[in-house]
Amino acid sequence: MRAALSWIFATLMLSVIIHIITIHTIPYAVMHRAMSRMSENAGGVNKPSFPPAPTATSRGVVRPSPDLLYVACVYDVDKNPVRFTGLVPDGYWSLSFFADNSDNFYAIDDRKLPSKSVDVLLASEDQEVQPHPGETLVISPSDKGVALFRFLVTGPAAREAMDKLRHQSGCAPA
């Protein structure tokens, strides 16, 4: 009887530990899978990809917004900082960064920019970098992660122009 109770107690303790590890691992696993797929589409890391407008056949990310066009960049700042540049439209636009645990650690939108262009230098915590004048320095809490440019498409008539504009966005090692 005592042996059975000990077995049950040990099993429950072990299952609690596995439960906690699983919960903590899920965001990393989901991000890893998303980053693998996105970097494959872009032809590598620190390169932009320009996914088509989301439709019912899109399986890139869950709950995609059909009213946005995206530019995605899987970054790796392990060896070098990465520079993000692009032109900014009238209307909602944002550039957001997600660490390898899925946290959105930085975002900037068109209202916070002084001009119609963006220039962000992303570096790791241990890199000593000097941003260009007018360039925003952002420190990534993880070496790898994802940056997303979001372009709002307010209607079918605006889609083509917004698609052209998003192709002016990019990321590359600095």
């Binding site: 899920i26 965001p27 989901v30 899925s102 946290d103 959105n104 997303l148």
Partner: peptide, 26 residues
Amino acid sequence: SGSEKADPYTRAVVALNGLFALTPAQ
């Protein structure tokens, strides 16, 4: 959603159901 202050359960749920969600201020 998306916050660095998110608890592990929220972070897991958002990763599965709303990856790349922005923070409420955005």
